[in-house]
Every structure is written in structure tokens, then in C-alpha cells.
Design a protein around this nucleic acid. Structure first.
Lengths: 408, 408
DNA sequence: TCTATTAAGTCAATTGTCTTGACTTATTTC
DNA sequence: GAAATAAGTCAAGACAATTGACTTAATAGA
């Protein structure tokens, strides 16, 4: 029917989908609980002992899990716990951040094994791609020195860069991020590295990092506010990063804040709450490689400009947090970003007390707001964690026949 | 391991999960495309013809799908299209809305077959439950008159009432909604009706209605703003209603709007954008059963109070829509609610032009904002649609062994 | 110290579901 | 009228989880 319109339908599944899901569930359970016996896994996943045994045997021969010494605990045969093998998989993360690009190599458990950094030449992607490919090659080489088995065990290359994507960007953007967005980056890097390449915005990457090895580890509903050069949020909903219809979900920096007084105009939140805005106030050059150190110095000794910025940013963040809580009803909100830890602490202090919200409910067992990574490398780590997550985390689309199944 | 802490893990799946998913996918495809042949279904779902044939045969013998006359279209054997059988399943929806309660009976395709309404007696749930059970019984009786087969084909009872849930509510709430929330409603109604009972807030129910039979039909990423006595949003993310950690996602009425001038305090959005706030301004009694008619009359003839409220509400809604677009990057935003259509039109006009946002992207093919149901019955329809959706729509949790699988 | 109990884990057969490839049927095109 | 095309069926096969009995190895209790 409907020759004209394509038929809209979700994909079906089969035994392969079942098996792939169950393998992912095992890995996820080991990631969350550290180590579990086959019997533990059977109970936790509602599968039978036999099924778990078969899957674990497979995963072991694939080099993804390994057994530990048997433990005696009470009556019955001692159990043999299993753990993830860090060297079971590797991924590369690439951050493209205006004037600088960073690479990170991580293993299956998200541990950072190698990193690299380079300045991006002026002139946009045509020139920058060479630098990037060199940097990736160098990082892979470094990684091969530490973990020779990595050569055959890459699951992908994750890229993080500032969003939003697919929007006609400001012409006056000095960093030519618009040019980067229009450049066929995925195709070029896929061809240049032979890896499976995906793109996410930097806030999403930061959230991926928090989920894999940070404050959101084990949480299924968490909102990560990422305060870097810009402002964004990574949305972890039902255990997965939410991307929206066009991959631009979480662009809270583009929210227009209400005019605060008559005559004031609505302005994007990012204009008040970002390292870019702070740099502007401090008269610093955002291209300065030592920017973070400079900000750290200035923020350390009391500085009226910093205090005013913090107050203003905190005012907006209070509202943003209250808004996000009202909309998402998350388990927690995590503030992270590429900023000096001292500045992050000032912000956290200024944000408290939080505005009242539905987050103040009876069942709360976790702080409403937590501080996540403030390391400038967190985005690159998240970029690297994305292929690991995509390949090994249980998710709906991994079950479907046409879903991007990954390789588990 | 970890005797103290329960093991955290997702559930595994098996052949049953596979089969259940594939059945749901078939039903979903027929719902979206109206009618499809087995071959169409095989192509659309990536399953084999044989598998589709087996599943369709089963669904047909279960009375959920039926064949239509064969159609010749080009070379090859004519195809036999299948469609959903409306009488294949039925559900009851119950709306509890302060002074009034409504019931709706729908079939598999979401068509309304019976409805009922009653005033809720003062005195809260202890007294109200009797009224409700009577009303449900009456609706089931009416339905049995139209569709005798409904007796054996109920998939559940969906309840919608104002949220948020689990929050210590205002003591000065004149409608005793807090008492309703503390009352063991699900248990009582489950025992009283023998049906599977679920609860959602009214905005979520409105979104469920839009998804099943309204403006969000076939959309996977849509935000429904529900403007009724209160204000809320129903979030359709990846084709499913998002509930948040505690079932309170979408409570945008609780967002504290920024002070608009020095000296003004932050106030919940709901205080400006709701029928409650309009009633207050107009000096109307919200308990008046004729409230909507009265508002319609007043809004019809130019009225300065209405104009001022519309302007104010539209100002806030502009910001709310821009915020939601920035956060979710949805395909569209739908404004719906329990208000006179004339008022809805005034609001829609006043909201335009929309504030700029990432929704203005290159690939846009749908209006950023659409008007959905303004029928006061929409929430009850959505409540009734929820069990249908839960039972027949493809979703992750339906695949899992311990997921609430429903009965497909 | 011996025995019963408990729990982990394996073995072999079974079941349920999708897949495969050949086949039948019905229609249009040339 | 023959060839091409597409829908749909048949029967055997493949795959993955399940079942129930069994083995192994520990502790608890008499």
C-alpha cells in the first residue's frame, strides 16, 4: 500500500537480537556491580543459570570477561566471580574545541590509557583535518605501546564538538565552528582511520563520561549541565543519552532568558553562563591556551568581576536547574564543565540553596545537585566512551534488526 | 557478591520477548499505515515473509487484525491487506479532575465508544471512590450494549489526575487532590473493577491521546503542552511517554518564572498560565460546572481581562516553548488543553511569532507549534488510550523478561 | 566426625521462534 | 501465449533460551 509514502514501521527482532541484548546486559551488570558470579547474573537478569553460563563462556572466549578466584560464602559450592577485562575493547575519543583538539584512548571500563592534544590551525576543517588525523594516529601508536592488543579491538571513534548541528550558525563565529559543521567530518575521519565514527555535542559527551566513570554511573535518569566555552546539557533518560529529533537535544545554552528588567532584552543563557562570557568580562582572549590557568588565578584571589559573574551565572543556573528538574524529574542533576575546580566550587556555593521544585519529594535519597568532572579532558573522555557505550550498553535499538547493533 | 547491596542489572530477554516485540511491531505498523499486506509488513519490519505470515495468522485468530479484499497493483500475485480490528481490545479511561470525574471507553484504534461524567462529592476519595466505581460500571455497561465482545477484551483501566505525585502538596488545595494522591487509589480501583490499573498525570494523558489519535500520531519526538486547570507537559521521547524517575516528568507548571521587574517574585508558571489563573482574574468559581462555557462567553466578546491574561500567558508560553525546543529538539510542539477553542485560538495567535530557537533548522518539515485537542474530554481519552498503548505499542520494557509485558 | 542441607554450576534433551530456499499462485507486460 | 514479477506457503533447519536431573563443594548441626 501507499506506494507514494514509505511505510513507517519499527523494526522487528530475532534470536540474534535476543542474544545481543543478553550479552549487553551481562556486561552492563558487571560494569555496575564490579564482579558477579554466574548465579548472581542469573538472578539479576532473570535468565537461567544455563543461559548465563553459555553467554559468560562466550564472553570469556571473546576476551571481554575473566574469572576471579572462587569465593566461599556460606553453604554451597563456592562461586566464581567474573569481572570485565579492561583490554577487551578500546575506543578513541576526539574533541574539537575551537582552537584546540584533544584525543583520548580508553578501554572497556573507561580507563584513560593515552591522550594527545594539538592546536588547530586557523583556516577551518580543510587544514585542521590533517592535524586531527595525525593526532589520532599518534594516540593509537601510544596506545599500541601500552596495550598491543588494542589494534584489533577498537570499537569506534567518538567525536565531540560544540553544537547545535544543522543550524545556520552565526557568521561572526571566530572559530569557524560553522565550517566544521558543514565539513564532511564523519566521512573523512572514517576513511582516514578505518573506524566507526559518531558525532555528539560536547555536553552530550560530558554526560557520557559522567555515565561511564563519573557521578552518573549507574543512574538511569540524570541531567548533566555542561558549562564550558558554551553551555549545554547531556540528558540521560532511561539509561540512554537522549538525542532529540536532530541530535540537538540539550542545547540549554540557547534558551532565551527572560528580561530581568524593563528595557533588557532576552538573551541566550550562554551569554551569561559560560566560560566565553566570563572571558569577555575578564578581558581574556578565549584563544589563549593558558585561559583556564588565567581564570583560575583571577578566580582565586577575590575579584569583583568574577564575583559578579558567579552571582549572575548562579542566578540563571538556579532557574535552569529548577526548570530541568520540573521537566525531567531526574534522580539528580550534575554540574560539570571545562573550568577550574575553584571556579566550580564558587558556582556550586552560589547556586545553593536551590530553588524549591518537585525534586524535593519524599523518596529522595541523593543530592539534587552534584558536582561532576571539571577536567577540560572530560569531553574527550566522553567522546571516547561513546563507542564503548554504543557497543556494549543494553538499549532498545541494539535489539532491533536494523538497529545500529554494534558488535558485542 | 555484595550481599548487602542488591545487584543492579537490567533484565534479559528470550524468545517470548522477541515474539512479543514482533507482534507489537505489526500492530504498530498497521496503526500507523492503516493497512498493509504481509509482504509490506515483511519489508517494513525487516522480518521474513514467513515470520510475518505466522504472526499475522496468530493475530487474526486472536481477533486483532483482519484481512481486506485483495488488491491488484501491477505484476505479481495480488496482495491481501490487513487492518486492525477495532473490537480487538478495549480500555477504560478515568479522569479525576477536582470537582468532576469522567470515564471513556475506547477500542483498539482509540475510537471513543462510551463516556460518562459525574460530580465528585466533597469529602475526598473515601466518598468519591463509590461515585467512580459506579461511573466505571455504568460505562462498561454502556459499552457492553454497543460492543458485547468487550467483556472479555479489556486490557486495562487508565487513570489521569493532576500531578505531581509523591510531593507534599499545598495544604490550601481546595480540591483535596492531596488526599486523592495519598489514597490507595490503584489498589481500590483494581480490586473494584478487576482491571489492570495505571496512573498518569493529566498532561501525560493528554499527550497519550495526541499520540494515539491526535496531532502526535506517528511522531516519535513531540512535546505536548497541556493547559487545563493547571499546566503540564507530556513528553513523547523516542515514541514513548517519558515518566522521569518518579513519574513526575513534565511538570512545567511548577517552573518558577523569572521575576519580570525588580520587586516581583518568582512564581510558578501555573500561576500565570492556567485556567485556574484565568478563572481567578475573571472572578469565576472554578467549581462551577459551567466554567468553560462561561469562559467561552467572556472570551468571545472582547474583554480586557481576557486580553491581558492571554498576553501574559502567551509571553510565558513563548518562553516555555523556546525552552522546551532547546532542551528536547522535538519534531513539533503541540498545545492542547481543556479550554474553549476560541480561547485556544487567541492564545495561538498571541504566541506567534515564536521566539527563535534551534527548531528553526534546515530539515524542518512540520510546524514548530501545532494546536492539539482542546476538548475537556481529551484527558479521559488519553487515560483510556494508555492501557492500549502499554499493551500494544513496541517498547523496550515489553521485551524484557521482568518488564511489564502486557498481553499482546 | 559424619550427615544433611544448601548453593553453584553442568549436561543433555526440549521448546519456541525466526530463517532459508524451493515452490505455488496470480497478475501484468510484451 | 510466454516471460516476468510479486505475494504468499511449505517443510526443513538453525539458533538461543529452558527444563530437570545431575555433579561438585562448601557449611551447619548432631
Amino acid at each position: 500500500m501507499n506506494e507514494m509514502h514509505p511505510i513507517r514501521a519499527k523494526s522487528g527482532t530475532n534470536q540474534e537480537g535476543t542474544s545481543a541484548h543478553n550479552r549487553r546486559v551481562m556486561i552492563d551488570a558487571l560494569r555496575l556491580n564490579g564482579q558477579l558470579s554466574r548465579a548472581d547474573l542469573a538472578r539479576a537478569t532473570a535468565l537461567t543459570k544455563q543461559t548465563v553460563s553459555n553467554i559468560i563462556e562466550e564472553l570469556e572466549s571473546d576476551g571481554l570477561v575473566a574469572s576471579l578466584a572462587a569465593v566461599r560464602k556460606g553453604r554451597g559450592q563456592p562461586s566464581t566471580p567474573y569481572r570485565l577485562v579492561p583490554e577487551g575493547a578500546f575506543a578513541i575519543g576526539l574533541q574539537i574545541d575551537r582552537h584546540v583538539t584533544r584525543t583520548i584512548a580508553v578501554d572497556l571500563i573507561g580507563a584513560v590509557l593515552a591522550r594527545g592534544e594539538a592546536n588547530l590551525p586557523a583556516g577551518g576543517p580543510e587544514k585542521g583535518v590533517g592535524t586531527i588525523l595525525d593526532l589520532i594516529a599518534r594516540t593509537r601508536h601510544d596506545l599500541a605501546g601500552i596495550a598491543p592488543q588494542s589494534r584489533d579491538r577498537f570499537v569506534g571513534l567518538g567525536i565531540a564538538m560544540p553544537g547545535p548541528f544543522g543550524i545556520d550558525a552565526d557568521a561572526d563565529d571566530p572559530w569557524m565552528m560553522a565550517a566544521w559543521q558543514n565539513f564532511p567530518l564523519l566521512e573523512t575521519l572514517s576513511a582516514g582511520t578505518g573506524l566507526d565514527v559518531r558525532l555528539q555535542n560536547d555536553a552530550a559527551a560530558a554526560a557520557t563520561a559522567e555515565k561511564m566513570v563519573g557521578a552518573a554511573h549507574g543512574l538511569d535518569q540524570a541531567i548533566c549541565i555542561y558549562l564550558g566555552y558554551g553551555l549545554g546539557a547531556g540528558l540521560i533518560l532511561n539509561g540512554e543519552l537522549y538525542r532529540g529529533a536532530n541530535g540537538n537535544a540539550g542545547e540549554i545554552g540557547m534558551i532565551l532568558s527572560q528580561p530581568r528588567a524593563a528595557g533588557m532584552k532576552r538573551a541566550p543563557l550562554e551569554h551569561r553562563v559560560s566560560i566565553a562570557s566570563l572571558s569577555k568580562i575578564l578581558g581574556l582572549d578565549p584563544a589563549d591556551p593558558g585561559l583556564y590557568r588565567r581564570i583560575d588565578e583571577i578566580a582565586g584571589g577575590p575579584d569583583a568581576r568574577v564575583t559578579a559573574w558567579v552571582e549572575d551565572a548562579a542566578f540563571e543556573l538556579q532557574a535552569a536547574i529548577q526548570t530541568l528538574e520540573s521537566i525531567f524529574d531526574p534522580q539528580t542533576v550534575i554540574l560539570c564543565g571545562g573550568m577550574p575546580p575553584g571556579l566550580a566550587r564558587l558556582l556550586m556555593e552560589a547556586i545553593h540553596p536551590l530553588l524549591p521544585s518537585i525534586a524535593e519529594h519524599r523518596a529522595r535519597s541523593m543530592p539534587r545537585l552534584q558536582l561532576g568532572f571539571t577536567d577540560p579532558w572530560a569531553v574527550a573522555i566522553g567522546a571516547a566512551a561513546e563507542p564503548i557505550s554504543r557497543t556494549f550498553d543494553p538499549r532498545f535499538s541494539a535489539i532491533l534488526k536494523t538497529g545500529t547493533a554494534g558488535a558485542v
